[in-house]
Design a protein around this nucleic acid. Structure first.
Lengths: 209, 209
DNA sequence: AACCTATACGGACCGACAGTCCGTTTTCAA
DNA sequence: TTGAAAACGGACTGTCGGTCCGTATAGGTT
């Protein structure tokens, strides 16, 4: 079997569809006002081409997400610290969550499209499973609670629709959000340094009668 | 204006619809195989009666959720400790989250129906706003991080689809889940007792070269 | 009991959208 | 050049949420 490579027009159209979809999701307020027909038209392509290329709506969303997430994930898997492997667990977990928050802030439209109209719940997607496995593995090297549940809980703090909700607030501030998340992570991990300082200060305040 | 009360058949039908919907959601695997027509038929009622009574699908879901959640919410607002008011913040937050976890475990089908096919994201519903306000208020009385974000993060740890996902695992154990959540809450709140003990142990381990 | 009307009922109907089918066009290797 | 595999596109279908409107009924009035 000579293993033909795909035809030129096919790959060209794949690209066009992804670009068109990205653009439309960015432009529209709600993900589900972006119909498959609209994507097809915007990409200058027939509807069947969408479905042939991606199976269904959820497939298109997943592919688009995958394409955008690719670089970040590569950095996580084989990049330098603090995202890459070989980083001490505490720092890597913090870096991972910070990166996810930033990524989702930068790709809100896609993120919410994926979660809401995408494929029901994010749990059960391969993406989620990978992120969860990684996080759980890092947490397992740390003292403290049930690493499986903790990984879920940390990931849930950067879920797309929560991020979208936070970012939609009139007084939203990216850096403040990152700080708040970092503090949460530190608290959950029981960061020895911050926690000790924090404890000390609080004790000093409260102990004074 | 004499403020007529609704006709007897109207209220009877309202009940019937709620009961039928609850039953159907419990019986079906995925929430969106429960069509409005099916609910109408199961309730022995015309489709228009559903829409007249609840506006749209999301409205029906919300009403159903509200009806089931009512008792719990009443307990939170005016019941005895630890759920009711007057409880010390740490304990009340823990009790609230535990209660939410249990409630969602007991009403998985409804919970996931509400979140997935319901009305897109839970943020923006009055229900969520109330829970968030309450939690934030309790957290504000505690030292530590940004109480607004922390409230969101804690609530996200008991989101319906996460709970459903956890409960679907073959080795799921209700008590273990409650414990894991309680530990998470303690960590996030920086529970002074547990935390200090924990710190001591860990420091002793790590400090030794 | 007969009557009257606001209120509610129900199922035929509509528009929209995800997903499919099939005749036509394009690529590309021989 | 040619022919067949690969890809295309838009008309078509099935389903579902939601509406419309003629009909039935509750329940107050006489």
């Amino acid at each position: 079997m000579p293993e033909r490579r795909p035809r030129a027009d096919a790959t060209r159209n794949r690209e066009a569809v992804l670009a068109a979809a990205d653009d439309l999701f960015a432009r529209c307020a709600s993900p589900d006002e972006v119909t498959m027909a609209a994507v097809a038209t915007a990409a200058g392509v027939g509807k069947a081409t969408l479905f042939r290329g991606y199976g269904d709506r959820a497939g298109l969303l997943r592919a688009l997400w995958q394409a955008r997430l690719g670089p970040l994930w590569a950095e996580v898997e084989q990049g330098p610290p603090p995202l890459g492997p070989g980083t001490p667990p505490r720092q890597r977990v913090a870096a991972l969550l910070d990166a996810m928050l930033c990524f989702k802030l930068d790709h809100r439209h896609l993120a919410s499209a994926l979660e809401s109209s995408g494929a029901g719940s994010p749990y059960g997607t391969e993406q989620y499973a990978r992120a969860h496995r990684l996080l759980r593995a890092e947490l397992a090297g740390l003292p403290g609670q049930d690493s499986d549940f903790t990984a879920h809980a940390l990931l849930s703090a950067v879920r797309a629709d929560l991020v979208v909700h936070l970012a939609a607030a009139p007084d939203h501030d990216r850096e403040a959000a990152r700080t708040a998340l970092a503090e949460l992570v530190a608290a959950v991990l029981g960061d020895p340094v911050d926690r000790r300082a924090d404890l000390t200060a609080r004790t000093a305040d409260e102990a004074r009668p």
